[in-house]
Structures are given as C-alpha cells and as structure tokens.
Amino acid sequence: MTRSPARVVSLVFLALFLLVDHDRIIGQDDRPREPREARLEQLRKRFPDADANQDGQLTAEEAQAFRKSRRQNDATQKRPRQRPEPTHGDVAYGPHERNVLDLYLADSKMPTPLIVYIHGGGFVGGDKDSVSPGMIQAAHENNISVAALHYRFVDGEEILFPVPQHDCARAIQFLRQNADRWNLDPQDFACYGGSAGAGISMWLGFHDDLADPKSDDPMAQQSTRIDAIGTMGGQGTYDPIEIKNLVGGRAWEHPSIFKVYGVKSAEAALHPTPEMKKLYDEASAITHLSKDDPPLYMIYSEPDIVPPADSRPGQFIHHPNFGKQLKAAMDKLGIENVYVHTDDAKGRDPQMEMFEFFRKHFQED
C-alpha cells in the first residue's frame, strides 16, 4: 500500500519522538547507552540529512533539530528520503581499495557543473553513501552532476596526514581528466562535506594547485583547484595547540587529532617538534588561505557556548568558533563567505541554501 506524504512525515515525527522525547521524559541515565546509540545510528541510515555536520554520527541534539526542522519547513516533505543509485558506482581513481567514487550524472546535452561530496567520520570512518539525496535531486533538477568520494583512513602508523587530503585532490584530478567522458565542465567544480569532509573540502579550496605540468602522469597534470566550498561543522585548523586556544575545553583531545599525526600522547601533541609543527600547518586549511581562494558556505549546529571544563575529550570539535575564525580571516581578505548557525535558520534549509550558493557561482563562471 502506498503511504501519503503526510502519513510518511507523521511516521518520521513518531520515530523521532520516541527516540528523543521519550529519553527526555524518563531521563537519559535510565536508558542503557548502547541501545540508544543503536537507535540513533538506525535513524541516521534512514534519514542521512538528520546528521547535520555529516560526521557519520547522529547525536540526540541533531535528531531533535531534525524533527523541529521538518515541522517548520513543509518544503522538506518533497525531498527524497532515499539516495538514488549512482550512474556509475565504485569507480577507481587510484590504486588503494578506498580510492573509489560514485557518480550521479545529470541528464544534459551540455557539459554539467559538478558538486563533489566528501564524507566525514574523523578520518577513521564514514562512507560516500551518506551523500544527501536532497542535494542530488536539486543538482539534477538544475543540470548539475554529483560525485561522492571515499579516501584512505588514517591508522596512526603508516597512513597519516595529509594522505586523505591528497587522495581527494587526486580524485579531483581524475574527474577533470575524464570530464569529456562523463560530460562534465572541468571549470565548474565545487566540494562540500561535514566534519572531516569539510576540512578536506576547505583544504582543496585554499591549498595551492597541486598540478604538476611536467609530470609523466597525465592525471597529475590536472588542476586540483575548485570554484566553491561548502562545509558542515568544519574545522579550519587541525593544529591541537590552535584548537585548544580557539575552542577551549577538551576539543583538542579528540582521538582523531592524535591519530592523524601518529602522536601518542597529549604532551607530544602540545609540544611538537619543528617537523611536526610544519605538518600541523600543512594539514590545516586556514594556513593556506589567500585572497584568490574560492567562496565558502559554512553551517554549524553545535551550541555556541564556552565548553565546560568537564567536557569529554573531543567534545565540541565542531564548535562555531571554527567558523567565526574562518569568517574573520576571509572577510579580511575580501573573500565571499556565508556563516550560518542552525539555531538562527529556523524554517530554512541551510543545505539547500548551500546548493543555491554553488549554483550562483557556477552561473557566474
């Protein structure tokens, strides 16, 4: 039996009520932690857009905000709930098993712009399947194609920063090299993602071009530059010293911050060797920022508060202060940027506003 859109939305509200409101009524301490996390993960898989910062983990706060947004914005009822099948899936862009991407090609006679999605997950998890179905639909309705990437996870030993960044740069080069094959416009590429994917997207946008015109590898000759960036809960810096000063609390103690550099202790992280400090700078997008860099659309959803001293290690790693720092730096250089906190976007859909931001800049080119 086919359910009406209103019936489907009612079921969504019921699921979210049972997940969020019931926990609030009985008290979180009365419910075992693992079952609650399992329900959150199940909800994230059913409704990928509920994961506001796209870091691969759905919090109770994000679930509650997702419920409120659906009540406030009837337009979201028309957005698809399920990700469509890719036009081309698991296309290899490099030798590693995670050097693969999916393509969702628009049906167009003219070469199409491309929006590239880079998933989050702390550089140790996540999946390209978390690409927003709504973003794909909006793109196809406007003759824009979408790609979603995998990249190598760090392991704390051999695969460290900036391997994930370079993998995604290679994917951009691969897509440009094959632009004619897939009817893409190589001059109109945008990148977006949440958390780790946001950091990589900014790194690609701000870093100097990695193209090597003298390389014997035709793919390496392609540009890695992009035209616009979108982020959700993005970190402009991965320097633990800078994060400690910028955010406070214990955000800088996030396990991934240690793992991406192969650092074994907090002491080593806060007192890096000169070589390690250079790597902090190389891996952080904001250190590469210059006035010729592309525009940025930022979304943040974590509370804009001073993190308490008793916060958990890694908590507030998506703090709005990252966005404020980026905005101040980009404003100073005269680079267009938009900062949105979901608390101030009631009744709006920031991800679709991000899409319109991309579309505007594609048209300007």
Rank of each mutant, 00 (worst) to 15 (best):
D310M: 12
M352L: 15
N337F: 06
A75Y: 11
V260N: 02
Q351I: 14
S10N: 10
D102Q: 13
P111E: 09
Y151V: 03
M219F: 05
D304I: 01
A139R: 08
M298H: 10
L58I: 07
R181H: 10
E356C: 05
P133I: 03
A251R: 08
I26M: 12
G230H: 07
M1N: 04
M298W: 05
L184R: 14
T224S: 15
G89Y: 12
Y151R: 02
T231L: 13
N337L: 06
P213S: 11
T231D: 14
F153H: 10
Y297D: 05
A198H: 09
L11C: 04
Y117V: 00
D155H: 02
K214E: 02
E267W: 11
D23A: 15
Y93T: 02
E97W: 03
F161D: 09
I299P: 04
A92K: 00
T112R: 01
Q187S: 15
Y339H: 06
M202C: 14
G347A: 12
D90I: 00
M1Y: 07
F17K: 13
I172Q: 14
Q222F: 03
G205R: 02
K264T: 03
A148C: 12
R70P: 01
V8C: 07
T342Y: 03
D49P: 07
R98V: 09
V20P: 01
M219V: 11
I26F: 13
R348A: 15
K45Q: 15
A345N: 10
F362Q: 01
A251E: 06
G248I: 02
P255W: 10
P313Y: 01
N73F: 13
E242K: 01
E356W: 09
A138G: 03
D292V: 00
I335A: 14
G233M: 04
C168D: 12
F13C: 10
I200T: 14
P213D: 13
Q235W: 00
T87G: 09
R312N: 13
S108K: 14
F189K: 05
R181L: 13
D55A: 06
A269V: 00
D343Y: 12
D293S: 14
S130L: 13
E356R: 14
F357L: 02
A106D: 11
R170S: 15
N73T: 02
W203L: 06
L160R: 12
V263S: 08
S132P: 03
G230C: 02
V154G: 04
G94R: 09
D293I: 08
V116H: 01
A65P: 00
F17T: 11
P240T: 05
F258G: 11
N245K: 14
S215P: 08
Q77G: 11
D74W: 15
T342R: 06
E336C: 07
H96Y: 10
G199P: 08
L296Y: 06
